[in-house]
Nucleic acid binder design. Structure first.
Length: 554
RNA sequence: GCGCCCGUAGCUCAGCUGGAUAGAGCAACGGACUUCUAAUCCGUAGGUCGGUGGUUCGAGUCCACUCGGGCGUACCA
């Protein structure tokens, strides 16, 4: 829509240049805005002000010159005026909007699909929690943000692959195995000492019990070395399976599950190291092997092989990202918890060393979630293993509310998740407010059907009957949907969709209150049904991006 | 100490990458149900955009400094 306005302004500029009223040695960027104040028209532009210097005229004079041209352009512009320091305000005709609305309606659920990502392959890695315990609410936010971003990018035309990186290597795996083994022995009445740094959650005891149920006392008389591999594998497999189940129930799906272990199995790690060494980014010191990350934006060099000969997590991450690059992605996006932000510069250093354009590599940091119950913070502590799992929240408030609440805020804002509010069935609760609008529209259609009224086709409807200001407000808001998708895709900010839906639905509820849809006047009723059907489609569309269902009745 | 994020109405947060008189939702107060879902709507009130200085026609937005909160600063992952 703004593009259309931009083209009109552009045309006016060209005409002014032809007539010699403006120099236009250099075309300025034409910024189109939607003024908050309705008195300032539907759109406004600041070009006149930004041209003041090069034209050496006052913004007002330039604005007047442009206005003069605009008036002669075509019938779509209903009103033009200059205002303030040099704004040009445009008011478009009702026909302009209705024509575009009809066009949007013809596109059905494809409305809002864009081409901006055409021929662009994007890799989106998110959650990637270690398989050492169930997903907690923080992971849940990452999952919701990632899945929605993937959906938005797809709608914007990108070819997106979602990926989960499984950290199934390293010391943590040993600790996990040992934790389960110790609980196993404990449950079989052996006295044990449970180390401080081991996993203390109840789920470890559950795993131990499962092993007792299936294997009995088989491992009791075996030493650690013999028993551990089994416990390690059993635990991580079971936990990963649980993670997969939690995510799929949370409507979060991946194209790839990528195992860290596989990078060792196929020598990718060694190859990546050899490549780095060959390029001179690696050196040996103090018995360890270092990456020269300080040659890039990182504050210091980082160890990739410890004195003990073990490789660090960072080491396999080099191989992992080389693998990502080799798969030919135009854009690589990682979504991490904010507690990993210190890791960003060194990863950027790796990408730079691998000769990948940093403009195409983004790490989104998702800030923490605080759960609120009864107006008070729910205490969580990873250390004691007492954190609230994603599964617990979902089973308490449902997938819809959880998915929506996680995306009500921009990623880099801390999120307060009010569990009581999420369960509330009233307009206080934004997710219900939106779903209710959808159900309400469906209900209107049921009433219409009882009256023998049918939804007209795009060629049979007379939209000029939609004369009310509220109807035009709705039409304008709907036409902004593609811009919301575009903006969300470009800024990687999914919360915009949540905000947009609230605004759209609020306009609908007002309209509904003021104007009865099913009336004696068949033509008018049909025009209104047509309007509602499109609103319904956008709600359904937007909610599905957010991973929220659209109930037909509530 | 250094680095990243945040600071906007009583609360939770937007603010379209520099535009006009800073917005929304809750909460508060006052209204609206013979009508398609009142699970809703309409109205009122609420602000030194943490602070100081700078950049310019113009700053919540950009820069510097500063105060407060969160997180990070491993040969952990």
């Amino acid at each position: 829509m703004k593009n259309v306005i931009r083209a009109i302004i552009r045309q006016a500029l060209d005409q002014a240049k032809d007539k010699g009223t403006l120099l236009l040695s250099d075309y300025p960027e034409i910024v189109i805005e939607e003024p908050k104040d309705k008195n300032h028209g539907d759109f406004s532009t600041t070009v006149a002000m930004s041209m003041a210097k090069t034209e050496r005229k006052s913004p007002k004079v330039i604005a007047d010159a442009i206005c003069q041209q605009l008036q002669s352009i075509n019938g779509n512009v209903a009103e033009v005026q200059t205002a303030g320091p040099g704004f040009i305000n445009l008011k478009m005709s009702a026909g302009f909007y209705l024509e575009r609305f009809l066009d949007a309606a013809r596109q059905g659920d494809n409305f809002g699909n864009l081409e901006i990502g055409r021929d662009q392959k994007v890799l989106l890695e998110f959650v990637s929690a270690n398989p050492t315990g169930p997903l907690h609410v923080g992971h849940g936010r990452g999952a919701a943000v990632g899945a929605t971003l993937a959906a938005i990018l797809k709608k914007a035309g990108y070819a997106v692959d979602s990926e989960y990186y499984i950290n199934d290597v390293g010391n943590q795996m040993n600790i996990l195995g040992r934790s389960t083994l110790l609980r196993y022995r404990e449950l079989l009445n052996e006295s044990i000492e449970f180390p401080e740094d081991h996993y203390k959650g109840e789920y470890i005891k559950d795993l131990a019990q499962e092993i007792i149920d299936s294997h009995g006392k088989e491992f009791l008389d075996k030493d650690d070395e013999t028993a551990l591999p089994f416990f390690k594998k059993y635990s991580s497999d079971a936990i990963l399976k649980g993670i997969e189940k939690d995510l799929s129930e949370f409507r979060v799906n991946y194209e790839n599950w990528f195992s860290e272990l596989s990078l060792y199995d196929d020598d990718s790690v060694d190859k990546a190291l050899a490549w780095m060494r060959d390029k001179g980014f690696i050196y040996d010191q103090d018995g360890a092997v270092w990456l020269k990350s300080s040659a890039f934006k990182d504050d210091k060099d980082r160890v990739i092989i410890k004195q003990s000969g073990e490789k660090t997590y960072f080491c396999s991450d080099i191989a992992y990202h080389q693998n990502k690059i080799n798969r030919g992605y135009h854009r690589i996006i990682n979504i991490w918890g904010a507690d990993h932000h210190g890791y960003v510069p060194r990863m950027q250093a790796v990408m730079e060393a691998l000769d990948y354009d940093l403009n195409n590599f983004t790490t989104l940091l998702v800030q923490f979630v605080t759960l609120i119950r009864g107006g008070k913070k729910v205490q969580m502590s990873t250390r004691s293993g007492e954190f609230v799992t994603l599964e617990e929240v979902v089973s308490e408030v449902g997938v819809d509310a959880t998915r929506f609440f996680f995306q009500m805020r921009s990623c880099d804002s801390h999120l307060e998740f009010d569990l009581d509010l999420a369960k509330k069935q009233s307009s206080d609760n934004p997710v219900f407010y939106i779903q209710y609008a959808h159900a309400r529209i469906c209900s209107v259609f049921r009433t219409a059907e009882e009256q023998g009224l049918k939804l007209p086709g795009a060629d049979d409807v007379d939209l000029s009957l939609l004369k009310e200001e509220e109807a035009m407000d709705l039409v304008k808001k709907m036409l902004a949907f593609p811009e919301v998708i575009e903006k969300s895709a470009l800024t990687l900010e999914g919360h915009r969709v949540a905000f947009y839906l609230q605004e759209l639905v609020s306009l609908f509820h007002s309209y509904y209150k003021l104007h009865r849809v099913v009336t004696e006047d068949q033509g008018l009723s049909q025009a209104r049904l047509f309007l509602l059907d499109k609103i319904r489609s956008i709600i359904r569309n937007g909610l599905s991006l957010l991973g929220v269902s659209s109930p037909e009745s509530m």
